[in-house]
Design a binder for these strands. Structure first.
Lengths: 187, 187
DNA sequence: GGCTAAATATGATGGGCATCATGTAAATGT
DNA sequence: ACATTTACATGATGCCCATCATATTTAGCC
């Protein structure tokens, strides 16, 4: 049955949100189109009215979730602390899309890779802006190095099957990033 | 046809090597059992004589490749430099299994996760041993923080669709890790 | 109010893949 | 040397999934 324009727009939004959560939680391959539609409260039939293919859904979902990805205008240390927390590690579905999906981007279409690239570019810029006390070269290096460590630590912490070591990876990386930012600031 | 004991052992080894390369290059899901066997010079029929399932192959492949993963007894800065090189970024199939597979471990069986955990534990220890000038607490923090940054940077560099930014992520992370190691050493 | 087009539902279709069944020939032990 | 076991090959089987075909209902326009 046909639905109103605004209902359709809301449906589309729900599909993207559902896809975003499911992809982060289970990976692109392990989520079926039908599963996404069901999570959005629809059936699989209407899917191709919204997207031309599953690859198209992936690309649009990435653009959607990376645009929404704030990173916060707040204090960088606070952000690092929450990023490198057990809570974030355990919340794949609602957590950072870069940590959850960056490694899988390699196997996706150019459109998806492009969306991820732009998301990373702006994330690096955002972190850089949170380090105004540094000169531009140090700022760039600190932003990229910190971001790589943060993403890497969450990926490793999620891969590790021992809660003690997993917690340690998060906490030591937090201390390391904090120290790196401070040391550069002091140099 | 039956083959000799040693031929069978060699076949098994070839299967694991082929699987290791294919998994790193294309991911666990995108590689079929038949593809692995073909790459090993066999047909898919004999597979279940060597492994009880594809999941079993994944777990054994991880144990195989992570045991072989040296990380080198050489200089840490040299290792970091080669790890964070465009050459390594572009060589998924032959590159670090952690960078290629860690993010996918989340969706694998407990046996696979356990193999990855042990691999990471020994890798962190190895990096720590390459920092003998630090006291134990700093050493541990530097080892974990550096390793997280290295893995994260390679994953990000591989995800990015712009060679300039991708190269920059590698190079800036290399500089950041170098500086971090030095700063801690000097503190 | 009635017509038309569009959004979604239900129900195929076809291919890929993990796993299994069976055949075959060679290695191993006596 | 022979029997037997066994490692591998060939050839199903059945499931899951992306995509398509068709039906249905209702929004949007006159």
């Amino acid at each position: 049955m046909k639905v109103s324009r605004e209902q359709m727009a809301e449906n589309r939004h729900r599909i993207l949100d559902a896809a975003s959560r499911l992809f982060r939680e289970k990976g692109f391959d392990a989520v079926s189109v039908a599963e996404v539609m069901k999570a959005a409260g629809l059936t699989h039939g209407g899917f191709y009215g919204h997207f031309s293919s599953k690859d198209d859904l992936i690309a649009q979902t990435l653009a959607h979730v990376l645009a929404a990805d704030s990173g916060g205008g707040g204090d960088l240390r606070t952000y690092v602390g929450s990023y490198l927390s057990p809570r974030h590690r355990d919340n794949c579905a609602g957590g950072c899309p870069t940590a959850g999906l960056a490694a899988a981007i390699r196997h996706q279409t150019p459109a998806a890779r492009s969306a991820m690239t732009e998301g990373l570019r702006s994330q690096i810029d955002r972190i850089g802006k949170a380090l105004p006390e540094l000169d531009p070269a140090d700022r760039r290096r600190a932003a990229i190095g910190s971001w790589a460590a943060m993403v890497g630590a969450v990926i490793l912490a999620r891969a590790i099957d021992d809660p003690v070591l997993s917690d340690e990876v998060l906490e030591q990386t937090r201390a390391w990033v904090d120290a790196g930012i401070s040391q550069v600031s002091a140099s």
